[in-house]
């Protein structure tokens, strides 16, 4: 397999572009709300209009997350969810969904523990389409990115309001699938979105890459998702979903509230 091999992420963005629609990327933490509930939740996300799923791999020290997603990680860890378990969940999801792209979003240490090459093999085998490893910036990501690319997986990188143009150039050279633009200075779920800054920065990034640009951090509802995606190719929604999973009494209740939230955002994005 090669890095040019067609990938579900590329296919999905091509389709969305063809339809003139924006991508809705949704994030939940694997194993949050119970191990048995994760795959049904993933199917619910798709049924309600999610285009790509970012599956959070729980870590004991999720440095870039705000309080809502931190709690999601803690709940998942209480259910003893390991990286291997996350890969099993993706494999199970793939039994019924062979089209929706799944990205693993997590931290470097569980991958380091498993070993980069065994991880890359296992992720490819399970039906994962890409990885975003939060604490592997461009200067440290090389070896893992290479292994994933060789197996046809995409390497998703973050860009931020403070990323210099030299770095944008360097990172977009390594990036594939799409670019995740962090809309603000802060952690996930923060609440001080500045739309002018998002517009200007996306324009700045666009000069360096043709990859789809998705905007995340601080996207809470249909209105904010719609505003940020006007300047890019999609929106990433995480904290509100993780919050809903945390508040739900059981799996069915979690699916119901996720369905409502995603449906509202999808409608706003398509309107």
């Amino acid at each position: 397999m090669s890095e040019f091999q067609e990938n579900r992420i590329d296919r999905r963005f091509a389709k969305l572009r063809g339809e003139g629609r924006k991508a809705l990327v949704t994030y939940i933490v694997a194993g949050d709300g119970g191990l048995d509930n994760t795959v049904p939740l993933m199917h619910q996300l798709v049924a309600s209009g999610s285009d790509l799923i970012e599956l959070g791999v729980p870590f004991s020290d999720p440095m870039a997350e705000g309080p809502v997603i931190q709690k999601g990680h803690e709940r998942a860890l209480a259910n003893r969810v390991s990286l291997r378990k996350c890969l099993e969940l993706v494999r199970e999801f793939r039994q019924q969904d062979s089209e929706t792209p799944v990205i693993l979003m997590g931290y470097a240490n569980p991958i380091e523990k498993m070993g980069a090459e065994p991880f890359a093999d296992a992720a490819c085998d399970a039906g994962v389409d890409g990885a975003l490893t939060v604490d592997l910036p461009a200067e440290e990501a090389g070896p893992l990115s290479q292994l994933l690319a060789e197996r046809g997986l995409r390497n998703i990188f973050l860009l931020t309001p403070t990323t210099s143009e030299e770095r944008i150039e360097e990172i977009t050279r390594l990036a594939s699938g799409f670019v995740y633009y962090v809309s603000l200075k802060g952690v996930t779920g923060a609440g001080h979105l500045d739309l002018d800054s998002v517009r200007d920065n996306l324009a700045r990034i666009r000069r360096f890459t043709d990859l789809p640009l998705c905007v995340g951090f601080g996207i809470k509802d249909g209105a904010s998702a719609r505003s940020v995606s006007e300047h890019g190719d999609g929106a990433v929604v995480g904290s509100v979903l993780v919050s809903a999973v945390g508040a739900a009494a059981d799996g069915a209740a979690a699916r119901d509230s996720i369905a409502d939230l995603v449906d509202e955002i999808r409608t706003a994005l398509d309107s």
């Binding site: 604490d135 910036p137 973050l158 931020t160 990323t163």
Partner: peptide, 19 residues
């Protein structure tokens, strides 16, 4: 790059790099 042999480095989110 801040490495002592294979150790050290800069394993942080992009949000911290410019700082």
């Amino acid at each position: 790059g801040g490495h002592f042999g294979p150790y050290g480095g800069r394993f942080v989110s992009e949000t911290l790099i410019s700082a």
